[in-house]
């Protein structure tokens, strides 16, 4: 066991992946609680697909991936939020359209330029080898920004997540905080995408909070538990992927899935909430 860790950390690229991954996992879990509870999980998914499209374009033009992706994905976050705020039902469909279109554009651009090669596969499903020294710095800065803003605005984020109507009526600028959540999510997705894969990054956002909600009944506990769980699953997934020689992104998702099953079982045994996030009936037609 000890030897395994020593071997693991003797590789520079694994160490880098570890640092970036832990930061990304932590931030994604924090934001995920609000995204899941506000039914914005689709936005996370949409953003990662848009992210893939922008990476593909950057690659084919020979530009630096992050510099191209960050502004474009931020723009997409703005648009997706607008869409899902305006019309709840059609919003879902619109987001699905945007995300599959972005994916298609990415694939076409790649096949016309560099061709569908191993790099593309890496973008789709992630690779820890993708983390370069420069990415490390960017990730640390982005994660730092996300963490600080999240902690500073924690209470507002709770208020806006729990009851946007009340928050808005009593003077909280709900639009601003929704935008903040979407922007921070966009940043984290861009940074984490190449390691986790465009197809898999959204699970990092959704799984930890869903798992924590099985057991805990207070927002603060769910947030803290999600953060810890997410980092733990990332670590376990990465180690497993090293030992079994499986892809890192997928292994991390599987670790999250296992944790979810475990939490759901515990929650079920404790008779707290029944499994499945049943749509609440009272949420339709607010008078």
């Amino acid at each position: 066991m000890f030897d395994l860790f020593r071997e693991l950390f003797s590789y520079d690229f694994i160490l880098r992946a570890m640092i970036v991954g832990i930061l990304v996992a932590l931030c994604a879990a924090l934001l995920g609680v609000s995204l899941v509870l506000k039914r914005y999980s689709m936005i996370g998914d949409g953003l990662s697909h848009v992210g893939f499209g922008t990476l593909a374009i950057a690659m084919s033009l020979g530009l630096a991936p992050l510099q191209v992706s960050i502004p474009l994905v931020l723009l997409a976050a703005f648009l997706l939020l607008r869409i899902s705020e305006n019309s709840k039902i059609k919003g879902d469909a619109a987001i699905a359209l945007i995300s599959s279109s972005a994916l298609a554009i990415g694939v076409i651009v790649i096949s016309l330029t560099t061709g569908l090669n191993a790099d593309v596969c890496n973008y789709m499903f992630g690779s820890i080898l993708a983390m370069k020294q420069g990415d490390l710095y960017v990730s640390v800065i982005v994660a730092g920004v996300v963490l600080v803003l999240y902690i500073l605005f924690y209470n507002k984020i709770f208020a806006v997540t729990f009851d946007e109507q009340f928050a808005g009526a009593t003077g909280t600028r709900t639009g601003l905080y929704n935008m903040l959540i979407a922007f921070l999510t966009a940043l984290i997705i861009v940074v984490g995408m190449r390691m986790m894969g465009a197809m898999l990054i959204s699970s990092l956002i959704i799984f930890p909070s869903l798992s924590s909600m099985r057991i805990f009944g207070s927002f603060k506990r769910v947030v803290i538990c999600s953060a810890i769980l997410s980092v733990l699953c990332f670590f376990v997934g990465l180690v497993v992927s090293f030992v079994l020689d499986t892809p890192a992104g997928a292994s991390i998702v599987i670790a999250n899935l296992a944790a979810f099953c475990l939490f759901a079982l515990i929650g079920f045994a404790r008779g707290r909430v029944l499994l499945g996030t049943a749509e609440d009936k009272s949420s339709d037609e607010a008078a």
Partner: peptide
């Protein structure tokens, strides 16, 4: 309007 399973 609060989700039925909202943890708070």
């Amino acid at each position: 309007v609060v989700r039925k399973d909202f943890p708070a």
